[in-house]
C-alpha cells in the first residue's frame, strides 16, 4: 500500500470517527455536539505519511497524477454540493426572505471540508483499485 493510499484510508477513518462522535453526542448535547467537528483537526497529521525515508520512494509521478486527479474530482463535487445547498436547498427550506441559522453556516464549513476530503480519498482508492493486481 502506498503512502497516498494509507493517507486516504486515514482521512476516511477520521471522517467516520467525527460523524459517529457527532451522531452519538446529538441526543445528549444538542447543538453542542457540533463541537465533534473538532476531530477533523486530526486530518492535519496526514502529511506524516509522506515523511521521507532513506532509499524508499514515498511519492512518485503516478501517485502525484492520481492525487491531482482526485483533488480536481473532489473540488468539482464540493462545488456542485455547495451551489445546490446555497442556491436551492436554503431557499426552499428557509424561503427566499428567510434567515439561515448561524449553526448551519458554521457546520457548512466543516461539512464542506468533509466532502472534499472524503471525495478525494475515495477517488484515490478507486484509482488505485483500477490499477493492476500485484504481479511478479
Amino acid at each position: 500500500m502506498t503512502a497516498l493510499q494509507k493517507n486516504a484510508w486515514y482521512n476516511l477513518g477520521v471522517i467516520a470517527l467525527t460523524l459517529c462522535t457527532i451522531g452519538v453526542l446529538i441526543p445528549v448535547a444538542g447543538k453542542g455536539a457540533l463541537g465533534g467537528f473538532g476531530f477533523l483537526g486530526v486530518l492535519g497529521l496526514g502529511p506524516l505519511f509522506f515523511r521521507k525515508r532513506s532509499g524508499q520512494v514515498v511519492l512518485d509521478e503516478r501517485d502525484r497524477s492520481i492525487a491531482n486527479l482526485s483533488w480536481n474530482f473532489a473540488f468539482a463535487i464540493f462545488w456542485v454540493v455547495a451551489v445546490m445547498f446555497a442556491a436551492l436547498v436554503s431557499a426552499s427550506v428557509y424561503g427566499s426572505d428567510g434567515a439561515v441559522p448561524v449553526w448551519i453556516v458554521q457546520s457548512s464549513v466543516f461539512v464542506g471540508m468533509i466532502v472534499i476530503y472524503a471525495m478525494s480519498s475515495i477517488a484515490i482508492l478507486v484509482q488505485y483499485g483500477r490499477g493492476a493486481a500485484d504481479g511478479q
Binding site: 532509499g55 509521478e61 488505485y128 493492476a132 493486481a133 500485484d134 504481479g135
Partner: peptide, 21 residues
C-alpha cells in the same frame, strides 16, 4: 523501481499497461 526512482506499484501498473510514464 529502485533504479528508476518510482514505487513498485508503478512498475506493476506500467507492465499491465494501466499507466503511461
Amino acid at each position: 523501481a529502485d533504479r528508476v526512482g518510482v514505487s513498485r506499484q508503478t512498475i506493476i501498473a506500467l507492465e499491465a499497461g494501466k499507466y503511461l510514464p
